[in-house]
Design a protein around this nucleic acid. Sequence first.
DNA 1: ATGAAAGCGCTAACAT
DNA 2: ATGTTAGCGCTTTCAT
Lengths: 332, 332
Amino acid sequence: MRDVAALAGVSLKTVSRVVNGEKGVSQKVVERVQQAAEKLQYRHNLAASHLRSGQRTKSVALLVQDLSNNYSATLLRAIDDTMREHGVVVFSASLDEEAEREHQLVANFIERRVDGLLLVPATSNQAYLQSDIAAGFAVVVVDRIPRNLSADYVVVDNIDGARKATAHLIAHGHRRIAMICDELSIPTARDRRDGYLDMLRASGIEIDEALIQVARTEQAAQAIVLKLLSYPDPPTALFTARNTITTGAVAALKTLELQSSIALVGFDDIPMADLLNPGITTIVQDLNQIGTLVAKMLLERLDGSQDHHRGIILKTTLCPRGSGEIRNTKSS
Amino acid sequence: MRDVAALAGVSLKTVSRVVNGEKGVSQKVVERVQQAAEKLQYRHNLAASHLRSGQRTKSVALLVQDLSNNYSATLLRAIDDTMREHGVVVFSASLDEEAEREHQLVANFIERRVDGLLLVPATSNQAYLQSDIAAGFAVVVVDRIPRNLSADYVVVDNIDGARKATAHLIAHGHRRIAMICDELSIPTARDRRDGYLDMLRASGIEIDEALIQVARTEQAAQAIVLKLLSYPDPPTALFTARNTITTGAVAALKTLELQSSIALVGFDDIPMADLLNPGITTIVQDLNQIGTLVAKMLLERLDGSQDHHRGIILKTTLCPRGSGEIRNTKSS
DNA sequence: ATGAAAGCGCTAACAT
DNA sequence: ATGTTAGCGCTTTCAT
């Protein structure tokens, strides 16, 4: 910048004015400076600019479970679109449910002075963020209700969604309904199991612990479904509480050629759900809406909103596509 | 930091040493400084640190077509993993094939002093980057060969992949093979069409312009397939030259209940390809491998490599899953 | 083992 | 309409 000033024969401050498009500079000088900048291949340094002006860095970070998963990718896309409209750029990273990685990345991004954080927590406790929020750092928690932390959040009603899924299967005559969910240390997984149990009880169906299973990966889910269906008294329906688990279940049913015999409702959409045969009935959350919403909530905080923290709980929708409408043909 | 120094009763430099874990500080002082930092909720400012030390910012930017697309999302995930191992964070953004957006975002990221750029270009000409590369900015171009720019790149052999797809369909008895690709302004689309034409000619099959179509979206592809199959002399096989086009074609075939009659080979994998009925035969590029590779190439440049720019062209694999192996039953 | 001074690239607050 | 001075938070260089 000094070199540009020298070449254009003006002061540093004048170059600064031109670069930032401030007014109060004559047209001639503007052109002279721009030519000098061009000739010297000058590139404005935003880091230095932010440092001095104490401005926002116009950057935020998004931490999700797995960027290659449809859920996270759709969320990122919606967030990035909204942020770009406001000239804000987005860092993103996958946590793979590792608490330690969340701690490290959050600390790193704060040291980089991102203006805000969008977080799908891998930790069971986010108290470590409290002091930074108090100091003005903007945080919006997504998908899971923050624990020991006062922050904005947007989640879906997982218990209600799981109840809907279970009720749907019961309404189609099923009484032996297996449920496969993620590790119970993950709050959404626990809620979905609770909603399932709740609806079974409300319907007077006895709970069979053997039908309640945990799978962390698609492969594990696939193996579990194969095992469940080899039981002497197998389930006639499956409730898969996460998208990768649903995919694994579909694969297992295909192997056994039972896609059209065993009913299936999945929580969270999977790609191609309507192109499979039968189509896969799922509990849907509108990720574009959620992404746009959390981005806007964060932007409000960046604009200095000091309002009380808001927690938004969205309802899910059951989207019938075929697999969930398979009736129970076994007498019970 | 000044406050921390004051509270700990040491100089600025000593705090700096402690914060950066440099040696040459007594154990007592280290602890005293750490306690002071804790008490004051001190957060190291990496932006200022990088500014003074002229160091790398340990950040890179990834610009792709659409972060919600399986292709881009898988690439991002692999890149992010590799970068994290090296303590580098990743900005990402979608370009939606808009050249102007590419120009703006690249300029913005350079002004933020990212160390490097991973780019799936939306522009037809990347000469605008030449001066920055000459000045030491690290760039790796992905998926498309850079035009008017000397830079590292990794692409797949699209012509070869399209030839394989077409040859596969010909080998299964097809002669009326429709091809649907993206806008021909996109180099990969042109290459894939050229490979298709090439293989038809080599096999002595007359080219029917009516069977060569362009679709930009999944919906457009779906409509085109419906139209093609309503012809008096419809194609018996489809080559869909991009993942969203393949998905649209699958939807159209399902509507017409022709999934098991019309052969289909797609370029690039689609989710659930093996769970559909029939499975969808695709030309596969290993995106995890590509993501890891481009990340490593960029990291080498960040480490100061001044080697001549490398262009890597990877071969694709045809993955037979059923849809591409449907034989032509019509006499010709 | 610790500290003082200078300065990274830029802009705020004041001049003129 | 333009320039001067000081300083953002940190690290370098050189002292002690």
